[in-house]
Nucleic acid binder design. Structure first.
Length: 287
DNA sequence: CCCCAGGGTAGGG
DNA sequence: CCCTACCATGGG
């Protein structure tokens, strides 16, 4: 990977990476597209590590605005998982015909290494909810309990802050029945009853069992937290979309040889069937 | 009015 | 073990 400083910006050359697909495929909720006047340029802006960041992509070239190489190596290389060789992962996964097709469509996606607390809390809010509304709920959560970074930008609040929050302020977020879940999660973490850092070293079964002690964390939310917040590549979230994919493509079951990277495959397939209109025939999408 | 959204819980068979 | 009603909220 080549990087060079251009004034205050950092220019990075990649391959097989899609900025938009990676940040807009439902694994994170704090990035937004910014319209660009330039043809073939995609711009995203979002909050990571309590900082607002803007990144553009044109072809294989990324521009990290107002970024030093020190910041790139300490934050962004890790966040975008640039050190992992995805070609090797795809070599395994693409032996499956469906994953291969999904990968041709969405193979620029990378598994982000996100903050575990923010990811867990976000996917508690995500349940039985749609992505645009999840994003606006989280934005409101940050504006209410986070710390202000700039005009319209706030940090993600700590578990302590939410655990000790006013009930009425929590319900003002319009999370519905999810406020109780978020509160229980925050309380268990603020009190030390659940230590998120320890989950990184747990095997998948124990990690699941630990997270499921939180009210409102069932099978699907636990898998999402483990995949997107703890970098467990074999975690395999099954939501309403993946149920459709499994019944349409995998009536004989999901291939065993893919299980090591099942979460990556799931992400390719999820984005493929959601955004590519003819991935699954429309008349089969019901149920 | 209906249905759906990156579901989970509680309760009954 | 399975199945189902119900759970808030907003968008289409």
């Amino acid at each position: 990977m080549k990087i060079r400083q251009d004034g205050s910006d950092l220019v990075v050359t990649t391959h097989n990476f899609s900025l938009v697909d990676t940040l807009d495929c439902g694994q994170c909720f704090r990035w937004w597209r910014v319209p660009s006047p330039v043809l073939n340029e995609n711009i995203m802006t979002g909050v990571v590590a309590n900082k607002l960041q803007t990144i553009s992509q044109t072809g294989d070239q990324l521009v990290f605005f107002n970024t030093t190489s020190d910041e790139f190596y300490s934050v962004w290389q890790n966040y975008f998982d640039f050190s992992t060789n995805y070609d090797a992962i795809k070599l395994v996964l693409c032996k499956d015909e469906t994953i291969n097709k999904a990968c041709e469509y969405a193979g620029g996606i990378r598994l982000l290494r996100q903050d575990p607390w923010e990811t867990l809390a976000s996917f508690i809010i995500s349940q039985n909810n749609n992505i645009p509304r999840i994003k606006s709920s989280i934005k409101k959560l940050c504006a209410t309990f986070g710390e202000q970074i700039s005009d319209d930008v706030f940090t993600f609040p700590t578990a302590q802050k939410i655990a000790h929050a006013d009930k009425s302020m929590l319900s003002s977020l319009s999370l519905g029945y999810r406020d109780d879940y978020l509160l229980d999660c925050s309380t268990k973490i603020a009190s030390g009853q659940i230590e998120l850092e320890k989950i990184f070293d747990m095997d998948l079964a124990l990690a699941r069992e630990t997270l499921r002690k939180i009210k409102g964390v069932g099978p699907k939310v636990a898998e999402c937290a483990l995949l997107f917040g703890f970098y467990k590549m074999s975690a395999f979230p099954v939501d309403t979309w993946m149920k459709k994919a499994l019944s349409y493509f995998y009536s004989d079951g999901f291939p065993e040889f893919a299980s090591q990277y099942a979460g990556i495959a799931q992400q390719y397939i999820f984005h493929y069937i959601r955004t590519c209109k003819d991935a699954i025939p429309t008349y089969l999408l019901k149920k």
